[in-house]
Design a protein around this nucleic acid. Structure first.
Length: 419
DNA sequence: TCTGGGGTCCTAGGACCC
DNA sequence: TCTGGGGTCCTAGGACCC
């Protein structure tokens, strides 16, 4: 049986989430900003039509925002994550196999479907919209790369109306010819420049390129993409997602930080969050990396990192904070205005398979019970418990000037049906 | 007059994704 | 004044081993 893969992609996902709970945003230009209200991470179609680009710093487009009354929101990741779960659960009821690829995308296995693919695509579109309020687009192809291309065209074409099937399609070559090479999955900015220099400007050109040449210039990733464009799958659907390789927490500061005290507070609070993430996923970390940086946009940039190896992999916040602060002590330099720091945990192993250390002095069972209790309280009472090392004031913290309520995950912030 | 060769593991950096 | 955050995979080069 030939493979059939659908890519279901939520339209302008963060904006769509906001619109579900605030219908006054419908039909108007809306953007969502990144942490610290720094740059644009989501745009409604109306905002895209105004020429607002993805990733653009907010301060650069202030005139456009004011002139066109663009509705500007801070990001509300708690809401988006919850809405994403609802969309993925809905899709899970419709197909036997799916791979959640990102917060707003999933690949579906549609091989051997009893009805036509376009028909089924329409059912997906209407069901997800009815159950969650989120509009989606469906692209179908023989490979993930082709499904991506179908999805992109489905979004742009009025005729497709949100669903496009390119499996055995007489229009496949035309679709590839209409796809600029930089829109092909895995082709980024660097590769685009080199491909265009070689006269390869569309997905069709790339499909018909010489694989030996592609191998030499772009390595195996390039070759896989060429095969995928030819309908030969190199990226199968992942049914059992492999174990996570790393867990990271980092934030820009709300204002520059110059003291070691505040840097330690910040890294302690990120370490605490990283510990929560580990425990949520049943993992423990063997390596802990801390890094610090001043602004990327100044001459005398200071960037440095340090990795500590943990004798026994752990997800104990007390230990993570202690190690993170030790790293911070080594990295901190007086006289710099730091803009950001972060923690990355690697060497991840399943908590259940932890080996005991022969000379281990810690009472790990006790620590585990403590973490479990803290997590339970924080889950029940909305993050009320904090670690002293995180500091009380946290003046370095980022600001969210226009964050919408946590409509779906906090009893106190539920939307009212009527006034 | 003259320094092997191949395999594996680890790490840092690059490129890309959403 | 103001420029996000969290991931993955690949590659090259060095260390190390036999």
């Amino acid at each position: 049986m030939k493979p059939v893969i659908a890519l279901v992609d939520c339209n302008n996902f963060y904006v769509s989430c906001e619109r579900v709970f605030d219908p006054t945003l419908l039909g108007r230009p809306v953007i969502v900003l990144s942490n610290n209200d720094g740059c644009v991470v989501a745009r409604s179609n109306e905002a895209k039509a105004l020429g607002i680009g993805m990733g653009v710093p907010a301060f650069e487009i202030r005139p456009v925002i004011e002139r066109h009354r663009v509705q500007t929101l801070s990001s509300n990741y708690t809401l988006y994550a919850d809405m994403s779960d609802r969309v993925m659960e809905t899709l899970g009821t419709m197909v036997p196999q799916l791979e959640v690829y990102s917060i707003d995308e999933a690949f579906l296995d549609l091989a051997g479907l009893p009805c036509t693919l376009t028909e089924f695509g329409r059912t997906i579109l209407s069901t997800v919209h009815r159950w969650t309020g989120i509009p989606v687009t469906v692209g179908v192809g023989r490979t993930k790369t082709l499904a991506k291309i179908a999805n992109r065209l489905a979004k742009h074409s009025a005729k497709a109306n949100g669903v496009l099937d390119l499996t055995d399609s007489p229009y496949l070559d035309k679709a590839l010819a209409e796809t600029p090479v930089e829109k092909v999955w895995t082709v980024g900015i660097k590769t685009t420049i080199r491909l265009k220099r070689a006269g390869i400007a569309t997905a069709l050109h790339l499909r018909d390129a010489d694989t030996h040449w592609v191998q030499r210039i772009f390595g195996v990733v390039g070759v896989r993409t060429v095969y995928e464009l030819r309908g030969i799958p190199c990226y199968p659907l992942e049914h059992n997602p492999p174990l996570r390789q790393s867990v990271a927490v980092s934030r820009m500061f709300g204002r520059p930080v110059e003291t070691l005290d505040e840097m330690r507070q910040a890294i302690a609070s990120y370490a605490a969050r990283a510990g929560e993430k580990l425990r949520e996923q049943g993992l423990a970390a063997g390596l802990l990396t801390v890094y610090v940086t001043t602004s990327r946009f100044i001459e005398d940039r200071y960037f440095n990192g340090h990795t500590a190896s943990l004798a026994i992999p752990t997800n104990d916040t007390v230990e993570l904070i202690r190690q993170a602060c030790l790293c911070m002590d080594r990295l901190y330099r007086k006289g710099y205005a730091f803009k950001k720091c972060g923690i990355v945990l690697t060497g991840l192993v399943p908590e259940a398979r932890l080996q005991m250390g022969l000379f281990d002095q810690e009472d790990r069972r006790k620590a585990r019970r403590l973490m479990h209790a803290v997590d339970a309280v924080n889950h029940r009472y909305n993050k009320t418990l904090h670690w002293a090392a995180e500091g009380l004031e946290q003046p370095w913290k980022v600001l969210f000037k226009r964050r919408s309520p946590r409509y779906t995950t906090d009893w106190n912030q539920l939307p009212a049906a009527a006034d």
